[in-house]
């Protein structure tokens, strides 16, 4: 066990990938000499060389498009998109190319490409640096989408994502980058696509992922004073979703609140609410509620505390659920 920040945990995970698979590459803007704007790839180019840790031209479609070609040649690229809001120039290469090649080829071509994207808000950034684009990718068959909420998951999930043969969009909650946590450097506790019950409870279930897991845990702690015993589930994998822990929790608590930063309409919460309504209808004591970003463009940073799900909004939703 070691205590480290999420940035360091990712860095050590990436280092192990490069050590263990000579076909693994890291590519992106400023990932080499600078070590990435968040330093996630710090010192990797120094240790593995510029043929394996590649500073690319400033062209997101080019990053994903050439990663596809490299993967066809047998390489295993791990791409970095510098910020969430910069992924859209690569949209075609992600959703029509990377996601669909295996299907288009009748299963003959595998594209083991990981696309790391720092995502979400809460860091006081200028526009296009705080977005939550996960629904676009979850809606796209052929991609897998995961996100880590703590250093241990970051360390292991990046390695698991790189080990598979399917393309993975790997979302990193940038406001949790500097949060420290225990990392078990010996073995992974969970598979890449498993959800985790991070706090058991009985009153209601909070379903969160990435940056909102911490919000949900803080809400659960605060809820104790109000007499609530809230269960918190970290979804971890957004595509595919590990449904069984969610259903089991719902059968126990009968109430659920989904918490995410992305806008509410057609967000992860919509799919989770619909599916749980279909699968757990007779266990539900209340509708599945959503605490999400508002259906507006991400606001100017002085307003982001009002936009992002927070403890007050989560506990208010729990109260509304319990009123049913």
């Amino acid at each position: 066990m070691a205590t480290m920040t999420m940035v360091k945990a990712l860095n050590s995970g990436l280092r192990r990938i490069l050590e263990e698979n000579e076909k693994a590459l890291i590519m992106g803007e400023d990932v080499g000499l600078l070590g990435g704007v968040f330093r996630v790839t710090d010192a990797l180019q120094k240790d593995f060389g510029s043929e394996r840790v590649i500073d690319t031209p400033l062209a997101e479609s080019g990053i994903i498009g050439t990663a596809i070609g490299l993967a066809m040649r047998g390489y295993r690229p791990i791409c970095e998109i510098q910020f969430d809001g910069f992924v859209y120039p690569a949209f075609d290469q992600l959703v029509s190319q990377l996601a669909k090649f295996r299907n288009r080829s009748g299963g003959l071509i595998s594209l083991p490409v990981v696309v790391r994207i720092p995502f979400g808000g809460g860091i006081g950034a200028v526009e296009h640096h705080s977005e939550s684009p996960e629904s676009y990718f979850v809606h796209t068959a052929g991609l897998k989408v995961v996100t880590c909420s703590n250093p241990n998951d970051a360390h292991w999930m990046i390695q698991q994502a790189a080990a598979g043969d399917d393309p993975v969009v790997f979302l990193e909650p940038k406001r949790r980058y500097q949060a420290k946590g225990e990392v078990d450097t010996e073995r992974a506790a969970l598979g890449l696509h498993q959800a985790a019950v991070v706090r058991p409870g009985s009153t209601a279930t909070l379903i969160a992922y990435g940056p909102t897991v911490d919000v949900a845990l803080a809400s659960a702690e605060a809820g104790v004073e109000e007499g609530h015993d809230l269960e918190v589930i970290d979804l971890r994998s957004l595509s595919p979703i590990d449904w069984e822990p969610l259903r089991a929790s719902l059968r126990k608590t009968g109430r659920a609140v989904v918490v995410h930063e992305a806008p509410r309409t057609l967000g992860m919460g919509a799919e989770i609410a619909a599916s749980l309504s279909e699968e757990c209808f007779y266990s539900l004591e209340a509708p599945v509620l959503r605490v999400a970003g508002y259906d507006v463009p991400y606001p100017a940073s002085r307003l982001e505390d009002d936009y992002l799900p927070n403890l007050d909004r989560v506990l208010d939703a729990v109260d509304r659920s319990l009123e049913h």
Partner: peptide
């Protein structure tokens, strides 16, 4: 030989990446 590519020019990047791989090899 690649797969037919209908989204115009998308294959040019795949070819560039593949050629980078050839050079790496």
């Amino acid at each position: 030989f690649g797969i037919y590519s209908i989204v115009i020019a998308s294959q040019t990047l795949h070819a560039a990446g593949y050629a980078m791989g050839v050079a790496k090899d």
